[in-house]
Design a protein around this nucleic acid. Sequence first.
RNA 1: CGAGCGGGCGGGACUGCCGCGCGCCGGACGUCGAAAGGCGCCGGCGUGAGGAAAGUCCGGGCUCCACAGGACAGGAUAACGGAUAACGUCCGCCGGAGGCGACUCCCGGGAAAGUGCAACAGAAAUAGACUACCCAAGACGGCGGCACGUCCGCCGGACGGUACAGAUGGAAAGGCGAGGUAAAAGCUCACCGGCACGGCAGGCGACUGCGUGCAAAUGUAAACCCUAUCCGGAGCAACACCGUAUGCGGAGUCGCGCCGCCCGUUUUCCGACGGCAGGCGCGGUGCCGGUCCGGCAUAUCCGCAGGUGGCACGGGCUUUUCAGCCCGAAGACGCGCGGCAACGCGCGCCGCAGACAGAUGGCAGUCACGCGCCUUGUGCGUGAAACGUCGCUGGUAAUUCCGUUUUCGGUAUCUCCAGUCUUGAACGACGGCAUUCACGCCAGCGCGUACAGAACCCGGCUUACAAGCCCGCUCACUUG
Length: 136
Amino acid sequence: MKLYPISENHLYQKAYKNGRRASSRSVTVYVLRDRAAAKLKKQDPAGRMINRVGISASKKIGGAVERNRAKRVIREALRQIDREYDVKKGWLVVIAARYHATVLKMQDVYRDLLYCLGKAEMLNERSDAPQGRTED
RNA sequence: CGAGCGGGCGGGACUGCCGCGCGCCGGACGUCGAAAGGCGCCGGCGUGAGGAAAGUCCGGGCUCCACAGGACAGGAUAACGGAUAACGUCCGCCGGAGGCGACUCCCGGGAAAGUGCAACAGAAAUAGACUACCCAAGACGGCGGCACGUCCGCCGGACGGUACAGAUGGAAAGGCGAGGUAAAAGCUCACCGGCACGGCAGGCGACUGCGUGCAAAUGUAAACCCUAUCCGGAGCAACACCGUAUGCGGAGUCGCGCCGCCCGUUUUCCGACGGCAGGCGCGGUGCCGGUCCGGCAUAUCCGCAGGUGGCACGGGCUUUUCAGCCCGAAGACGCGCGGCAACGCGCGCCGCAGACAGAUGGCAGUCACGCGCCUUGUGCGUGAAACGUCGCUGGUAAUUCCGUUUUCGGUAUCUCCAGUCUUGAACGACGGCAUUCACGCCAGCGCGUACAGAACCCGGCUUACAAGCCCGCUCACUUG
């Protein structure tokens, strides 16, 4: 999956204010239905629905090295989840890193993120979902 | 070996799978398009963080503001000589301070232009006279004398003279000695110290040594200040271009006075009122990012939202034009030469990441290094203890030989007992698939591998930094 980043600040504000929220010890996830999803689908050369994702790591969790590390780990976890599960499309997803995201291993962040996405009702039921990983 | 001083290196490595940014190539794919091509997708190749990328403290390049005006304000620097594109950086050197020394220092204009401040203590704080010392001269008072005067002698206090002594203080207007005096004082002299010099010698110079002269001079300039030198301001969120048809926000299309054209209302006219293009003056506003002077502009302008460039070395040439070639460059590396050094010159060679929610990663494994465990080990080594054998010491019984009448003494062999780490004495050698302990090594297991992420680009400074390694020098000792 290619990541489509959110660059507009007001979209972050909307997601924080109006989005569904789910948090764990390493990440907090905000999701909000993307009003521009249809337009983006039309613009997309492949004509697919996409999620726009923004990963936020504040200065609270550390310096530039720690913030980058948190973002990379979260991005990698999200990539694996997207490959192994059926994530709903057409949403704004904002993931805010918390302090533990800088310390934990990717597998731990993966579990946290999966839990949060499930709680935010972003996962479609898929019969082969949990076992899909092994079949690959 | 020990204790230090100065400088440098280093910044984990590899493999597999899955990914990311940028560039190039390929594609029979998707989409937009008339096409060229754009955007995407798939595949391949190349490339992709630091010594500090950090702090943003200095200096430059570059960009714009009016190519940068005048004055003031403000800021920075501060011995001297050099290096450099430049610097507050670097090198050398001078004086001072610290250290036995290697060496170090966020030590370095002016307090004989002015203003200020100097707590406490102390008699006194930048000048004075409290205690103290002194009556030689002068003044005053008292007493006495006679030759009675503008006289002489004695005494007094301190009007007066002095600043030697006085426990303080960072500092008491040089120190110490001699002379000198009524008492004293650089008042005079010798030595030492200080300051000055258009004096001599050395050095490019700061300065040093010598000489001559002088007696004025407490500290503080990280108090104001003065002197010299330098600095226009802001920064890539600069700035340029394309879109600005659009959205949002802000300021405004102006105020007063005078002149005056024209129009309207009213009016018989004069005149009054209103409108309006223009001119002049004053003001306002904006810009010339501190202020003033001076200048420009005055109707639309400014800011924020998008994209491209800046910008990933620069420039030029060319029918290989998504390419090729050439030249240059405060840049990196190597060699040579010059210089004590910073550094310079010449030659060779390289010429190297680039986003805009921000790429350079995730996971697994192997190895390296460090630390811990080592009651994880049929592991290895060393040491100690224990054990065994031999030796040795003491005792003991028997036997041989010698001395001896015998008791007994000596000597050698040997039995048994006790001992062989501190004693009365011995206090050593060897051994092990075997016991215990300690240390080290090798495996094994576990943990750790720092500080930290380019954002226009260079030169410095400062700060952060795990383990490890190297070079030069100093002091102390000669075996703990």
